[in-house]
Amino acid sequence: MSRDTSQEAVLERASLRASVLDAIAANKHLKGSLLPILHDIQNSLGHIPSEHVVDIAEALNLSRAEVHGVISFYHSFTTSPHGKTVVEVCRAESCQAKGGRLVEAAVKAKLGVDFKQTTDDGEFTLEDVYCLGNCACSPSIRVGADIYGRVTPESALQLIDTLKTADAS
């Protein structure tokens, strides 16, 4: 694959790298700083760009393989960008006991994707999650820092419509 050398692409890569270096600078002083660094990058960029793993590795005196190993181990970290909105549907037992499987099916059908996939228009990524600690108000869905409880298939679909509208405006 040839590298895109257009001015825009070069600028974008520079900005990605700046975010990575910022995250390193902000956390490097901590003991065991790799996870805080990865969280910062994931939060600011929505993923951890593979081509900048080397920057992290060099800063922490680790091998690229070690950094890659940590990124691939944790569900929170991804190396490709996710959709604009990440919808996490809880699949754990308490939600199952309250009809969570119906919610899962409704959301999958609505978005037309399976778990860990992104819609074609790049709007939504659907993620499975194993417990949001909202088990006394099951079933649950999380979108960013917002958690929704007592979700039904109908209310889940409404929620997605609302998110679409919010995103479009």
Binding site: L34, L35, H39, V70, H75
Partner: peptide
Amino acid sequence: RLGAKSYICGEETALLESLEGKR
């Protein structure tokens, strides 16, 4: 310190590894 969505990190030795910045 924040975990990163890994159930096994509730196991105490896996948790310590994670706190140290490892898998």
